[in-house]
Structure formats: structure tokens, C-alpha cells
Amino acid sequence: MNIFRLTGDLSHLAAIIILLLKIWKTRSCAGISGKSQILFALVFTSRYLDLLTSFISLYNTTMKVIYIGCAYATVYLIYAKFKATYDGNHDTFRVEFLVVPVGGLAFLVNHDFSPLEILWTFSIYLESVAILPQLFMISKTGEAETITTHYLFFLGLYRALYLINWIWRFYFEGFFDMIAIVAGVVQTILYCDFFYLYVTKGEGRSQLSIPT
């Protein structure tokens, strides 16, 4: 494991914890897309089914369990515990427009036509676009709380660091996985507009406004 992969994982963990703590501390999930969080829970569930079939390392197992646990805890907080604060009127992205094409693509373009492999591919494709309901919600309301922008920053940084990890692995191990790389590039590109606003306008502001 190289430093980019490790910092990518930690960045991902930071994003997940930041969101969970934000909701817990403020007792509110205002401004958070429950749909994106359901998609992320679906991503982790379909990707980490190998927890049941193979053991890779203690690190690997621990992180997977934490990711899945936090994802479902977040969904629980949004749709059950703090349901009254959930801004469903602004969370109107049609997720079937993501899940259905992504499911079809996973069936068509994969490394091996087996259930676990298709589900893994599905999770990779779905993760690349799972943030869209959240970005759509922010563009609709026109603003995001600072802590939400930190969450998005770490979530975007994670896949960007993974891209560097894959470049590193290509040069030093001759390793590459086209499905992960293409989806990773798409995923990172979706955050670019946000990164720009985060860096140029996020500093010292209490709220980030994204022009529609």
C-alpha cells in the first residue's frame, strides 16, 4: 500500500465521520441528501460482499466494516432519528436515472460475468455518480453549510488520491484496472467544479453558494 492509497482511505474515512458527527452534533440533517447517502450505503454493501468470502487483511476488514456501519448509521439518522429535519422537498434527484443505467452497464462491461464481480462493478460505477443527488440539492437550494463543504471536499479528495495511487501502481507495479480508473476519473471530475468553489470562495465564509 502506498501513501496515496492510505491518505485516500483516511480522507474517505474523514468525510464519513465528518458527516455523521455533523448530523449527530447539530441533531439535524438539513442540507444533506438522504438519496446520496442511500446510494453510498448501496455502494458499500454491493462492493464489500467479499467480507463474507475472503479475508484480505485486518486493515481491510476493519475499514470495510466501519464504512458500511457508518453508511447505514447515516441513513438511519436521516430517515429515522432526525427525519423531521430532513429536507426532502429539495432532495428531488431521480435516483432511478442513476441506478438503472449503472446496473445495465455493470452487466455489460465487467471483468467476469459472475454475481460477485457484477456487484463489485456495479458498486464502482454507482459510487462515481452517487454524489449527484447531493450536488443537485446544493445547486437547488443555492448554498451549503461549511461543514457540508468539508464533507464534500474530503469525499472528492479521496478519489483524487486514489487516482494518484493508480498512477503510482501503474509505474511501480505495472498494475491497472480500467473499470476502476475510468469510473474514478468520472467521479473526480464531478467534484472539480466544487473543488474550485471550495478553494476560491470557501475560505473564511460561513456558507458556500453554488451558482445555478
Binding site: 492509497r5 467479499d50 481491510n60 470495510k64 501502481r169
Partner: peptide
Amino acid sequence: EETDSIKDEL
């Protein structure tokens, strides 16, 4: 861990 596959990643 030189033999990482893509599945070893998160």
C-alpha cells in the same frame, strides 16, 4: 503487500 489486487483496495 506487494501483491495487492484491485479488490484489496477500498
